Computed example of a mutant assay.
Amino acid sequence: MTTPEPAHEFESHRPRLFGLAYRLLGSAQEAEDTVQDAYLRFSGADRAGIEHLGAWLARTVTNLCLNRLTSARARREEYVGEWLPEPVVTSDGTLGPLESAQAREQVSMAMLVLLERLTPTERAVYVLREAFGYGHREISGVLDLSEANCRQLYRRAVGRVAVAKTRFEPAPERREELVASFITAAREGDLAGLEKLLAADVTWWSDGGGKVTAALRPIEGREKVARFAAGAAQRFAVGLEYTVVEVNGASGVASWAGDTLVGVVGFELVDGLVACVWAVMNPDKLDHARRRLSR
């Protein structure tokens, strides 16, 4: 019997492994690197001794991510301004099917930011359970922990990332309409129009990473966010082109200067209003989105 080439065996698992690594790391670039590292380990392994390839690969990727998370935590403590996850375009199925509000929530900017509160092991347990439906026995096998310990870690993680659920999610076409209206109002300096689109407790998060101009702290409240959005559009967005995209399971906008992607902005909508804005301008975090959008 001919043994399949390792690349052929591995490729069917790559999308799922990328989704796992991205949820664990919050970085598309590091997720791609991790999956490639897993491939190298697989290609050099005794494949005849691997009974369940999917489980073996999930274990390998998870443990590679745990190693990366330890060093990533130290780097993020020194990060200039607010750290946000790398935006991922999800309309092409990059993170798998996102057919429910719960599935979209698991890859949302808000959830990935909340996962930063967890220890690496708590994060792994939570992601494997919530996003991939692993049972506690399966998780214990992946992490080499007792089933009881996994249950305890999961309960602790749930308590730390508990968030209010979205009460009403607009239809996709309505979400795109709200985002387009926001961009138009911001570019025209229409403060009244912007305020009509914003929740009273809206928050704007910016991530420039010290590479480009960005607010170093969150901006909170309807009036402050409206003024900031209009001011930023007038100062920095003149001449840019915009495309509405699905980013991290939600409506967003990609801004372009010619062929250069200069920013990706995601919007969290609650009850038909913008409740949170996530603006990623750090050029180091835009390469994955640029490659997906340029296709």
Rank of each mutant, 00 (worst) to 15 (best):
residue 25 L to M: 06
residue 133 G to V: 11
residue 7 A to H: 13
residue 198 L to D: 08
residue 106 Q to G: 05
residue 249 G to Y: 02
residue 277 V to E: 09
residue 98 L to G: 06
residue 76 R to N: 04
residue 171 A to F: 06
residue 201 D to C: 05
residue 98 L to K: 08
residue 26 G to P: 03
residue 85 P to S: 02
residue 283 P to G: 07
residue 264 V to R: 00
residue 188 E to V: 02
residue 155 R to S: 13
residue 152 Q to Y: 04
residue 114 L to A: 15
residue 280 V to Y: 02
residue 5 E to Y: 03
residue 156 R to W: 04
residue 135 G to M: 08
residue 215 A to F: 11
residue 153 L to V: 06
residue 282 N to K: 04
residue 211 K to D: 15
residue 196 K to S: 12
residue 190 D to I: 05
residue 162 A to T: 12
residue 134 Y to W: 13
residue 218 P to V: 07
residue 206 S to A: 15
residue 287 D to C: 06
residue 159 G to I: 11
residue 269 L to K: 00
residue 186 A to K: 09
residue 58 A to S: 13
residue 94 T to K: 12
residue 155 R to D: 04
residue 155 R to F: 07
residue 123 R to D: 12
residue 140 S to C: 04
residue 19 G to W: 03
residue 140 S to F: 01
residue 97 P to N: 13
residue 168 F to W: 13
residue 196 K to I: 00
residue 2 T to Q: 12
residue 11 E to K: 14
residue 142 V to Q: 01
residue 188 E to H: 14
residue 289 A to F: 10
residue 245 V to Q: 06
residue 86 E to R: 09
residue 79 Y to E: 06
residue 24 L to H: 11
residue 148 A to I: 11
residue 151 R to G: 15
residue 268 E to V: 03
residue 102 Q to T: 15
residue 170 P to M: 06
residue 152 Q to I: 11
residue 95 L to E: 02
residue 24 L to A: 09
residue 158 V to G: 12
residue 97 P to W: 00
residue 132 F to Q: 10
residue 111 M to G: 00
residue 21 A to R: 09
residue 145 L to E: 15
residue 265 V to L: 11
residue 218 P to S: 00
residue 214 A to N: 08
residue 40 L to D: 13
residue 195 E to W: 10
residue 130 E to I: 08
residue 284 D to I: 01
residue 192 A to L: 13
residue 53 L to M: 08
residue 203 T to L: 08
residue 6 P to C: 10
residue 183 I to G: 03
residue 74 A to V: 14
residue 201 D to G: 01
residue 189 G to Y: 02
residue 240 L to Y: 00
residue 142 V to P: 05
residue 90 T to Q: 05
residue 120 P to L: 07
residue 99 E to P: 01
residue 64 L to F: 02
residue 283 P to H: 05
residue 273 L to N: 03
residue 266 G to N: 09
residue 105 E to S: 13
residue 242 Y to E: 14
residue 139 I to H: 07
residue 114 L to E: 14
residue 86 E to F: 04
residue 105 E to I: 00
residue 12 S to N: 00
residue 182 F to S: 06
residue 145 L to P: 02
residue 221 G to L: 04
residue 179 V to K: 01
residue 85 P to W: 02
residue 215 A to I: 01
residue 292 R to S: 13
residue 59 R to K: 15
residue 127 V to C: 04
residue 92 D to N: 14
residue 201 D to H: 08
residue 203 T to C: 14
residue 94 T to I: 10
residue 182 F to L: 15
residue 165 K to Y: 01
residue 46 D to H: 02
residue 167 R to D: 11
residue 79 Y to P: 00
residue 183 I to K: 08
residue 109 M to F: 15
residue 125 V to H: 05
residue 56 W to G: 11
residue 62 T to W: 03
residue 5 E to R: 14
residue 242 Y to L: 10
